[in-house]
Nucleic acid binder design. Sequence first.
RNA 1: UGUCCCGUGGUGUAAUUGGCAACACGUCUGACUCUGGAUCAGAAGAGUCCAGGUUCGAACCCUGGCGGGACAACCA
Length: 561
Amino acid sequence: MSENENKPQSNFIKEIINEDLKNGKYEKVHTRFPPEPNGYLHIGHAKSICLNFGLAKEYGGKCNLRFDDTNPSKEDVEYVNSIMEDIKWLGFDWEDRLFYASDYFDALYEYAVKLIKKGKAYVDSCTSEEISEYRGMPTKPGIESPYRNRSVEENLDLFERMKNGEFKDGEHVLRAKIDMTSPNMNLRDPIMYRIRHESHHRTGDKWRIYPMYDWAHGQSDSIEGITHSVCTLEFENHRPLYDWFLDELEIHHPRQIEFARLNLTYTIMSKRKLLELVEGKYVDGWDDPRMPTLSGFRRRGFTPESIRNFADRIGVVKRDSIADVSLLEHSLREDLNKRALRRMAVLRPLKVTITNYPEGKEETLEAVNNPEDESAGKRGIPFSRELYIEDRDFQENPHRKFFRLAPGREVRLRYAYIIKCEEVIKDESGNVIELLCTYDPETKSGTGTAQRKVKGTIHWVTRKDSIDAEIRLYDRLFTAENPDGDKEKSFKEFLNPDSLEILSDCKLEPSLANVKPGDKFQFERNGYFCVDTKETGNEKIVFNRTVTLRDTWAKIAKNRN
RNA sequence: UGUCCCGUGGUGUAAUUGGCAACACGUCUGACUCUGGAUCAGAAGAGUCCAGGUUCGAACCCUGGCGGGACAACCA
């Protein structure tokens, strides 16, 4: 619902912004989304993207895209491209404001020189072990480095030579001179620059020193004129440092605001662990439809609208929480229900012969494309003597509340006739392999003569005209609500062995012959499906099940146990 | 045994900033239905982590507990 999307919901960040605007701290709102190009975006990032771009839009401001590319050894253009693609797919536009932290390496260097001259930064020549040892513990103060009181001149000289590549990796670092006894670890002379003899994906070999996150981030925000720098909770303890740099430098001072990152039931959100799933081949790549990555959701058949709606509904707060996937699924179904064309597809076929339907006869029946949208029109579907129905729509000894086909019972074939099961044919081992049924010619759909009511309606496909396809059924990737929440067990122990089921003998109605990768449909009574973008080729059609329909029967069947 | 942040139905959020706790998801009924979908109607479910205090009045303010999270990468 578009009104849903426009419904402005307040949150603590907007309250802060309102206050800042009111008292003149800032005159406009300028946010940014600052991903590190070292992995694929996931739904947690989507929350942040929706938030940052959403705030800019709501306040008539701007939102920049800035790649936080300060660590050449982890980052890659592959990620840069996938990130841009995902943001665009989600529906946001940074216009001409695509930036990189590496754009500011020169400016950052000058700022560092300024701090050195102020006596607020120094070159430390301790080893990384020593530095870490001197840093102390959260509960115990650190001690000062023996190099802490070098002269400004010496620092300037050393720092320039660090830049010029005169030293080896790890030989020196540039540190801010703050307070080794601070109860906030981030203020214990944080490292600003480290030496890395590595090429950067954008600056090439120009730099031999690279800035750390804390040093690069706030200054980049400042350079871009960001007003509200929205980030996740783990940076809360960094805010004093963020502020310290800006204050010492006396430059434009954005306000950092932290919110709780998104957690979702039955999924993990850690980039590192997601990478582990990919590298360990537990899934089929970053865009595996079971992955919580945006590329995974896209391939699975999710719409960007549904994800945006979801992001609106979960809200923004400072407390840790874990959102229910069913809310995401609700947003998805709500969107797809309005838009997806209905089609009939039989996932697990059971042959049905209508014994009193003339052999060789064929007729075309009319079916509605989308009951939620009349403009979607109608289509014809062929009907003839031999059909397939869903094998689960037949029970030899039906449960009390099962209103589908059973020996001697009647059901309506959607958009066609009422049929009655007269005989059950089995193979040697007792499996039902075919049903012999009769139909009632008076009950043709839409004729108005169909006065008779039957309790159940099932979908079907004609044998002769059906199209073969492979359909992949997905279930949640993990069996535990919070797979990451167990201190004893690894998240991998909660992987759901049944998260993927491949059905290779599915039968589709003929109107599905010319589908294109990415096309989305509702297969009546089954769920929403989309044409897989990777596996679908000339000879083969592969559908992914995006999400099932709400299924009350499944609930009844489950509760029976 | 430090600093910072956070505690509202099962879940996620709200409460016009001190006025008797609202919405959504989920759950459960029922109606309708040629999708056991959608839709519609309804129900159950928290007295706001605990204990004090201030106040005519507290989820909102104060104090003290308790519980959860973050911080000890030359990662972001």
